[in-house]
Design a protein around this nucleic acid. Structure first.
Length: 619
DNA sequence: CTTCCGTTGTAAAC
DNA sequence: GTTTACAACGGAAG
């Protein structure tokens, strides 16, 4: 009797902490000196059916889970990562009951979606008398503590974030990985049924259906096809093989980190804005973001490895770079976005209801029903806008720099930070004037390192919706890449049809004489698209529109943004590229349009390098 | 109130 | 290759 009460039986729930090193939550679990510890992962149907996730992120996750399982086995041959296929909200309470769990331990996830889910799970198991311990470990600082120190307001700049953390204790050195892990106990699943733990409920909205080549079989059983709680495979998701060359896992993360730190001078003099988005083999940056996203790499491990590396190098006479441009600074932006998301909640990922996000009359914004629910799938908008969005996503805009980046994104699941800037600026305030929500959605689908805080935060930054406001600074689709690479290696790799164009024309092949095009074996307008819009003309229109939006001064939480009437408060600048720009699309009711705007300066339309009409006719 | 600063612009002028 | 005008924002500091 007394012995039974003393027995400590821990369910350790792995989520975005797929590592053994520097895991405060796992450390806490082991400090309980448990008799048994079950390392589990709940294979949540939400991500399989309701959230659009590309094959490369799933592949990275599965590899990271496999690697973690191997590391667990190395600590104790009797253990491994146990995958249970079902929604955590019902599966975890059922496991607690079936396995007589006394403690549920996991790393705290502060992002709103996860926080809501975890609160649900927590409430259910607390009811059953299980103690719940959640421990921070995904960030250097507690986003809630930063928010509190900032008066409950979102941190909108690095300086305000810095002021908020000034009096908080700084990050300590990372914890070592455990050497031993207790074994799990019995693993039977009495009376588990799909009625209680539905996966099918989500089938009605299988948003990934288009990517699948076969049926989803991963929910046929709870413990996998072999009944051994094995890690699912892409086959069981019905997905084709992954296309990325980025391998997942903690082992790979630590190898990459060590590898990058070999070159102490590069670490110590790192300046993000100076790193090239055009090189890829190897990339100019660490490529550690995917590992950070899934917790294969702990932020403190990264921070202190970098700090130590720089200290050593400085001892040899070097002088180091400063935040926020240096490597440590990269982590600080992540912290800033986490704190801002924590203060803002679910609306951080959208315009509607988002008090830090400017309301701008972007095309193809989210749409909501009367009760404020997002309409899924999104009703189609103006065909010209839709065509532009589709071309952007497909890497067929006719601008090689943009297209190469988008194709790299799809293939590799990762692109350089400044490449993200280029394509995000182009889609939103630079040229297309399409809502950042659409871009964020595509990044969510394709980026391995997608993170609800950093992704939405950076899209608001680039679209000048929050964090940043210098909307005149528009990235050129030729000038910007030329600054880094005049030879166009990224374009040659990801747009191979352009590989034989001369350096001077690689970013603007449409002005190439036909004879040269023929020699290069690629006719622009046939083998590669004409530019789908006039870069300079659209840039000027966009700047004018954003300027007008700033003057109007609406934010996402304005009543007009909530009830959908805000768009009608905008007036349009005269159309310069195509007279029938709005002819095909339905205009919003009550929309006013004026003929002239602002400076009234007649804009010359000298170089019409292409038009959406010409572009569409090629499709 | 004014001034200064802000990770990552461009194009022209020197 | 570096410097400067461009046209100009929000927020913090003074």
């Amino acid at each position: 009797m007394a012995k039974l009460e003393a027995s400590t039986r821990v369910l350790y729930w792995f989520r975005t902490d797929l590592r053994l090193h520097d895991s405060p939550a796992l450390h806490t679990a082991l400090d309980l000196k448990p008799d048994v510890l079950y390392p589990i992962w709940t294979w949540d149907p939400e991500y399989v059916f309701a959230h659009k996730v590309g094959v490369n992120r799933f592949n990275f996750l599965l590899e990271s889970m496999c690697n973690l399982s191997e590391s667990l086995i190395a600590c104790n041959a009797k253990t491994k990562l146990h995958v249970i296929r079902g929604p955590p909200q019902t599966v975890i309470p059922a496991l607690c009951s079936a396995w007589n769990i006394t403690h549920l331990v996991y790393e705290k996830d502060t992002a709103e979606y996860a926080a809501v889910r975890d609160a649900d799970v927590k409430a259910r198991v607390l009811d059953a008398g299980v103690r719940v311990i959640d421990v921070l470990g995904h960030t250097l600082y507690d986003p809630q503590a930063v928010t509190d120190a900032h008066g409950g307001k979102a941190t909108l700049s690095i300086s305000s974030w810095r002021a908020a953390v000034k009096n908080l204790p700084g990050p300590e050195r990372p914890l070592p990985p455990p050497k031993h892990i207790p074994p799990p106990g019995k693993t039977d699943l009495p009376s588990f049924s799909r009625t209680e733990h539905p996966a099918s409920a989500y089938h009605t909205v299988d948003v990934n259906a288009g990517e699948r080549e076969a049926e989803v079989t991963c929910y046929d059983t709870f413990a996998g096809p072999r009944g051994d709680f094995g890690i699912p495979t892409l086959d069981e998701l019905g997905f084709p093989p992954a296309t990325t060359s980025i391998r997942g896992g903690e082992t790979e993360a630590l190898r990459r980190l060590s590898n990058y730190c070999q070159d102490a001078e590069r670490v110590a003099t790192f300046a993000k804005p100076k790193t090239s988005p055009a090189v890829f083999d190897p990339p100019a940056t660490t490529l550690l973001s995917p590992y950070m996203k899934f917790g294969c790499l702990g932020p403190r491990e990264f921070l202190w490895r970098v700090r130590d590396c720089i200290t050593e190098w400085k001892a040899d006479g070097g002088s180091k770079n400063v935040t926020p441009e240096n490597l440590e600074g990269q982590l600080l932006f992540r912290e800033m976005y986490y704190a801002a998301e924590c203060a803002q909640g679910l609306s951080f990922g959208q315009i509607r209801g988002n008090s830090i996000c400017r309301f701008i009359d972007w095309r193809l914004q989210n749409e909501y029903d009367e009760s404020g629910r997002k309409i899924v799938p999104r009703p189609l908008g103006d065909p010209v806008d839709e065509a532009r969005l589709a071309a952007w996503k497909a890497g067929k805009t006719g601008f090689p720099w943009i297209d190469a980046i988008m194709r790299q994104l799809r293939q590799e699941g990762w692109i350089h930070h400044l490449a993200r800037h280029s394509v995000a600026c182009f889609l939103t305030r630079g040229q297309c004037y399409i809502s950042w929500e659409r871009g964020a959605e595509v990044f969510d689908e394709w980026l391995i390192d997608w993170d609800p805080c950093s992704n939405a935060g950076n899209w608001m930054w680039l679209s000048c919706s929050a964090f940043f406001s210098q909307y005149h600074r528009v990235y050129g689709v030729v000038s910007f890449p030329e600054k880094f690479d005049k030879s166009g290696i990224l374009v040659r790799k990801y747009c191979p049809e352009l590989a034989r164009f001369p350096d001077k024309l690689i970013y603007s092949p449409h002005i190439t004489p036909l004879s040269v095009q023929e020699k290069a074996g690629c006719i622009i307008g046939k083998d590669y698209p004409l530019p789908m819009l006039d870069e300079k003309v659209e840039k000027e229109r966009c700047i004018g529109r954003v300027k007008a939006a700033y003057a109007l001064g609406l934010y996402g939480n304005h009543s007009a943004a909530l009830d959908g009437s805000a768009v009608a408060m905008f007036t349009d600048t005269p159309d310069l590229t195509s007279g029938d720009r709005f002819a095909g699309g339905k205009k919003k009711a009550g929309k006013r349009r004026r003929d002239e705007e602002g400076d009234g300066r007649p804009k010359k339309n000298k170089k019409q390098h292409g038009s959406i009409e010409k572009y569409l006719s090629q499709q």
